[in-house]
């Protein structure tokens, strides 16, 4: 019997180890493909969006609203002066009588009227499509609220308490859904999306509209969806199914 060729075995072992070292970061990168390094700019190759399936959204369920309030430290709204980042709207088709329920938040338009009208540029759109308010340059003129077709923005009418580290809020500035930019940058989904799934409805799909293999892109391609006030051609990042 010939002696075992240990050098060949060692070569195979080294090759496997090298392949493992080389591939592991790739596997990890794939796992957290959406996460952004600190200081890394948002990419214009990405267009974050949401698809709301109104046929799955349950009337009376406020899981998304509650999760949003908890995530951003926004108290539950009851008065016309209270901020509301996301709201549940009950809809009745005036011709057929069909009833639908849907969450409405900032629609993260590609052509946002709020950004156009903001005198100081405090309302701005990130390269990846998220529309935000820079709290350092917002002067509280509320022109963006006049311009928003979706009533998506709120003005902070009173001193705030219970602020969250990721969501600075303050009296005298305008605010709205920021698509949980801090979570998205960590590679997570917005709080409302996770809450809707946890409640068993899975009525909100979040993802990159520009990525043809993403669930949202596949859904938008395969089923009829619509954008609110599509006549305004603001090209919203939030789409609705079943309206």
């Amino acid at each position: 019997m010939n002696p075992i060729d240990t050098s060949r075995r060692a070569f195979l072992g080294r090759t496997a180890a090298f392949a493992g070292v080389a591939l592991a970061p790739g596997v990890l990168l794939y796992e957290f493909a959406a996460a952004r390094e600190a200081g890394q700019e948002a990419s214009a190759a990405v267009r974050w969006g949401m698809l709301v399936d109104t046929t799955r959204c349950a009337s009376g369920c406020t899981a998304c609203v509650d999760a949003c309030n908890a995530e951003h430290g926004v108290p539950k709204a009851s008065r016309p002066t209270d901020a509301q980042w996301i709201r549940k709207v009950e809809l009745k088709d005036l011709r057929t009588g069909a009833v639908r329920s849907a969450p409405v938040m900032c629609q993260h338009c590609a052509e946002p009227p709020c950004v156009d009208v903001c005198p100081t540029g405090a309302s701005f759109k990130r390269a990846d499509g998220i529309v935000l308010v820079d709290r350092h340059t917002c002067i509280g003129c509320r022109y963006c609220m006049m311009a928003c077709p979706y009533k998506a923005r709120s003005f902070v009418h009173e001193p705030t308490t219970g602020q969250k580290t990721d969501t600075p809020r303050g009296k005298g500035c305008v605010e709205s859904c920021n698509l949980c930019a801090h979570r998205v940058d960590r590679g997570e989904k917005p709080a409302c999306v996770d809450a809707c799934s946890a409640a068993g409805h899975r009525a909100i799909v979040f993802g990159d509209l520009n990525d043809p293999s993403s669930e949202i892109a596949l859904r938008v391609r395969s089923v009829a969806t619509s954008q609110l006030r599509a006549d305004l051609r603001t090209d919203n990042g939030v789409r609705y199914q079943g309206l």
């Binding site: 950004v115 156009d116 009208v117 903001c118 005198p119 100081t120 540029g121 405090a122 350092h136 340059t137 917002c138 002067i139 509280g140 003129c141 509320r142 022109y143 003005f155 902070v156 009296k171 005298g172 500035c173 305008v174």
Partner: peptide, 22 residues
Amino acid sequence: DLGRPERLVVAATHYNFRSIFA
């Protein structure tokens, strides 16, 4: 009436020329 009137200097130094307000 501004929410942050003390930021008038911001309004005077940051202009978004797409805004008729600016």
